[in-house]
């Protein structure tokens, strides 16, 4: 109990036993596995002088890698937002043969290990692959280009948008749309003025989750990327490369920039979720 109260956790009286010991173990476990390792990263970063840190993270190669990671993640999340919304609409609003299968397929990117997705997509979009061979005559190269990274990021991000928006659209009261229709609104007006504002927070959350996942993604990307410095080299890969060169300072500096960016993202996602809960609750 002393460990728990030391960090400001105070419990209210309860007849259920075991708070002290379970809370103590929980905080110990959380610290050992998550908090201390993450703190070690920032500790290592502070060993660098500010000049050195700035020099590392503003070098051309690092900036290009960060720009590529964040830019393509944004683009992939945007594509997922559009197609994810259409898929959710189809699953929740229509009945058609194969609807359950469609619904089940959405989770494949969650369950399929990233390395498997990586080699499968690379092979598929390589010049002699099933899809690559179709695209080659058009002059479109996917595998081993930034376009390939984009394809992999779309693959891994899709379930985040669908599974975030789906429950909200399922819960949405259809009477609202009927009211809009009886009041003379066209179908499009009803959807854009009634449905869209209601699911907007969920859309934003799904978008942010897909984006956050894409920024950190490694396994599915490195096979298809081609990994050309300054062109198709993502930030997580650059961390691995620096680590393999034993340039720990560089790896640490890039990692801490990415980590801070994802913490800011996490904060925004949390805020969005609270905001949307309030909105839905208020209706």
């Amino acid at each position: 109990m002393s460990g728990a109260s030391a960090i400001g956790l105070r419990r209210y009286r309860s007849v259920i036993p075991g708070f002290g010991i379970t809370m103590g173990i929980t905080i110990l476990w959380l610290s050992l596995i998550v908090l201390i390792p993450l703190a070690a990263l920032f500790l290592k970063t502070t060993e660098l002088s500010l000049d050195r840190f700035v020099q590392i993270v503003t070098s051309d190669r690092v900036l290009n890698a960060l720009r590529l990671s964040f830019g393509l993640s944004l683009a992939a999340a945007a594509v997922n937002l559009v197609f994810g919304s259409l898929i959710v609409w189809a699953i929740t609003r229509y009945t058609f043969p194969g609807r359950r299968i469609l619904d089940a397929l959405i989770d494949i990117p969650f369950a399929l290990p990233t390395a498997v997705a990586g080699i499968a997509l690379t092979n598929l979009y390589a010049e002699n692959g099933w899809l690559g061979a179709l695209l080659a005559p058009l002059g479109i190269k996917v595998s081993f280009t930034p376009l390939g990274i984009f394809v992999a990021l779309v693959f891994i991000g899709l379930p985040f948008v669908v599974r975030t928006v789906q429950p909200v659209l399922e819960d949405l009261d259809k009477e609202l749309e009927e009211v809009a229709a009886t009041l003379g609104a066209s179908r499009w007006t009803a959807v854009s003025r009634v449905v869209l504002p209601t699911i907007f927070p969920a859309l934003l959350t799904g978008f942010a989750l897909a984006f956050a996942r894409a920024v950190g993604e490694y396994g599915s990307v490195i096979f298809i990327a081609g990994n050309l410095p300054n062109v198709s080299e993502i930030a997580p890969l650059l961390i691995v490369i620096r680590l393999e060169e034993f340039r720990y300072a560089d790896a640490t500096a890039i990692a801490s920039v990415m980590l801070i960016a994802s913490f800011i993202l996490l904060f925004i996602i949390n805020w969005l979720q609270r905001w949307s809960e309030k909105r839905v609750g208020g209706q």
Binding site: V34, P37, A40, L41, Y218, L243, Y248, A251
Partner: peptide, 20 residues
């Protein structure tokens, strides 16, 4: 805090243990 590892890149998850 429990959800924190979800928002950390897997590469960074490995890196922190190398740093330790």
């Amino acid at each position: 805090l429990v959800d924190l590892p979800f928002s950390v890149s897997p590469v960074i998850a490995g890196l922190v243990f190398v740093l330790l």
